[in-house]
């Protein structure tokens, strides 16, 4: 029963921080495991509907994008990378931003983790890591949907080196975006975040068309470079469906790395601002 006899020893900051980091990751994964059903539902709802309507219903009723035959095949293949990229951004919002809005809200649930022996920026990095892991899992869930639902065959030509480097980068960018949003938005602003950020980002993210084909609308082509999702979609496009035109690979790496640094910095700064005064 005694409190004093076995008091905590002071451990080196480094190993205490690493343990705290793993503890938090374990916590997030436990929460994820216990709500796996909800995770799958929230992950597949949007892409399932989208893929179903555009690549199954439309070709069957002879209407819509790409028409029938070769055009339809092209469109259903074109969609795969976009759908995977959107899944990464959605995870960033759903696995990082929305929980953070609550944890920073009136419950201040984040406090116990902030009081753990690791620097405040470490807690923020943990959030990005756990969001990225959930983003990767979401991509794995969404990928077969986009591949097997379409009525017309999907043609993939996977470049594994690119896929395995773009995937962690893209999921981390999605999670960093979630952190940046989650540390700045108030609970009552959540609906606004969806209309002002999530919807434009997904529709103008080179997800449903290759970025290079925006040539006829030059202003849009250059404006969307400010959208991190463009690099994620283009990355998955070169890695999965290189038959379509895409941005130079180096530009994609650069864009994703740049946004990771920028959004990560924005998120960590926002995080610090919310917990320290």
């Amino acid at each position: 029963m005694s409190v004093s006899t076995r008091l905590a020893e002071i451990r080196p900051a480094r190993s205490a921080s690493i343990d705290a980091f793993w503890g938090m990751l374990l916590r997030d994964l436990t929460v994820l495991r216990r709500s796996m059903g909800a995770f799958v539902v929230r992950t597949i709802a949007q892409p399932l509907m989208f893929v179903f309507v555009f690549t199954y219903v439309f070709p069957k009723i002879g209407q819509g994008v790409g028409g029938q035959g070769a055009g339809a095949t092209a469109f259903s293949s074109l969609l795969v990378p976009g759908v995977v990229a959107i899944a990464c951004v959605f995870q960033g919002i759903q696995a990082v931003a929305l929980p953070l809005v609550q944890e920073f809200g009136y419950t201040r649930e984040i406090e116990d983790r902030v009081m753990a022996p690791l620097p405040v920026w470490g807690v923020a990095i943990e959030k990005i890591t756990s969001g990225a892991l959930q983003g990767a899992l979401a991509s794995v869930v969404v990928f077969p949907l986009a591949t097997f639902i379409p009525a017309t065959p999907v043609r993939l030509d996977i470049n594994w080196l690119e896929l395995l480097t773009f995937l962690p980068l893209a999921t981390a960018v999605g999670a960093a975006l979630g952190l940046a949003i989650g540390t700045r938005a108030e609970p009552r602003q959540v609906p606004l975040v969806f209309s002002i950020i999530v919807i434009p980002v997904t529709f103008l993210g080179a997800t449903y068309y290759p970025w290079a084909q925006l040539d006829p609308i030059p202003w849009l082509k250059w404006a969307v470079l400010l959208n991190p999702l463009v690099y994620m979609s283009e990355g998955f496009r070169t890695a999965l469906t290189p038959q379509f035109p895409h941005m130079p690979v180096a530009a994609i790496y650069l864009g994703m790395a740049g946004f990771l640094v920028f959004l990560g910095w924005l998120g960590i700064a926002g995080f610090k601002k919310r917990v320290l005064s």
Binding site: I10, R27, E109, M115, P117
Partner: peptide, 19 residues
């Protein structure tokens, strides 16, 4: 870091992890 290892904190409001 060392200070956090030595202290326990109960805040003014209920900050228990709702998840």
């Amino acid at each position: 870091n060392a200070a956090k290892q030595l202290i326990g904190v109960v805040s003014q409001s209920n900050t228990l992890d709702r998840s």
